[in-house]
Amino acid sequence: MESNDTYLIKRVAITENMDNAHLLEVSGTCPLCGKYMLVAKGKRMNKLYQIAHIYPNSPTSNEVKILKGLERLGANCEEFENKIALCKDCHGYYDDHKTKEEYLNLLRIKKGLLSASKAKIATSHQDLEQEIIIVINELSKIDQQTLQKMKLEYQALKISNKVEDIYTLLKVKIETYVCIYFNFIKETFQNLDQAGQINFELVASEIKTSFLKCEKEMISKSEIFDSLVKWLKSKSVGSSSEACEAVISYFVQSCEVFHEITK
């Protein structure tokens, strides 16, 4: 251990609340192998995970050498930012076979989790008018015949101006939702707005604000899209993920979500 390294401090015991926070952060699955980290045994849930240090608390001379100059998270090695829940197998392997590449990979995963958490906290304070739930509910009732009548022609889409080619899967997903549901969602919003049941401008403003909050915490458009879908689903309990994806895709097309790509 480098005695003059102020990042390294005495090990701090993990409280039950902090343990739960780490498990919640990774949604109960090991971020390295995908294994579920709790198992039911009788009436109890057994832990199959441990809280790992990303940068070691007591690095060996070899670890100091291979990790020298690399980014470290948190003000010291015992902060939440430098720890992550891993299954026992992955934790053991990481501790015994740490390489620069494996360290940077775990660092990247943790930074992504921290960004997602910040975006979730930011959008959780963003209220969504109950009225948008009406639109989501209407999506669940739509029949195939109505969809066919309202389907957009593919060439009418402008998603390519908003989503770069590196996001191929996201681009295809949004284009598909817009192609099938855009006109239906647009007409539903218009009818409800004209009937005085919703205020479309208010709904659009809330979606835009949530997008800007996510954009502040995340760079990846795929992650931003997923965060907005999760936020919409959390605000409209009982709605399907697909319906929420269709609505967020509508707002990508109508300009509340994502900016036009600058050439």
Rank of each mutant, 00 (worst) to 15 (best):
S3H: 11
N4I: 11
T6S: 15
L8Y: 05
I9A: 09
I14Y: 00
T15E: 07
E16R: 06
N17D: 11
D19W: 01
N20G: 05
L23W: 03
L24N: 15
E25R: 11
S27V: 13
G28S: 04
T29S: 05
T29K: 00
P31N: 11
P31H: 09
L32V: 10
G34K: 04
G34I: 04
G34D: 00
Y36N: 09
L38Q: 08
L38K: 09
M45H: 08
K47Q: 11
Y49A: 00
A52S: 08
A52F: 00
P56R: 06
N57G: 07
T60R: 05
N62S: 08
E63S: 03
V64W: 04
K65E: 13
K68A: 01
E71H: 04
R72E: 02
R72L: 03
G74S: 06
N76Y: 03
C77S: 14
F80G: 04
F80L: 07
F80T: 04
E81D: 14
N82K: 08
L86D: 02
K88Y: 06
K100C: 11
E101D: 07
E102T: 03
R108D: 02
I109G: 01
K110T: 00
K111M: 13
K111W: 11
K118H: 06
I121H: 14
S124G: 07
H125Y: 04
D127Q: 09
L128A: 12
E129H: 14
I133A: 03
I134L: 10
I134G: 00
V135C: 09
I136Y: 01
S140E: 14
D143R: 09
Q144N: 12
L147A: 07
Y154K: 15
A156Y: 10
D165H: 08
Y167N: 03
L170S: 06
K173V: 02
Y177M: 03
V178F: 02
F184C: 13
F184W: 14
F184T: 13
I185A: 13
K186E: 15
E187C: 15
E187P: 13
D193G: 10
Q194T: 15
N199Q: 14
V203E: 14
A204D: 11
E206W: 06
I207S: 04
T209W: 05
K213I: 07
K213E: 05
K216H: 13
I219A: 14
S220P: 10
K221G: 10
S222F: 03
S227K: 07
S227W: 00
L228K: 00
L232Q: 01
V237C: 02
C244K: 03
I248H: 09
F251W: 06
V252C: 12
S254I: 03
E256V: 04
E256A: 08
T262D: 15
T262C: 14
K263R: 10
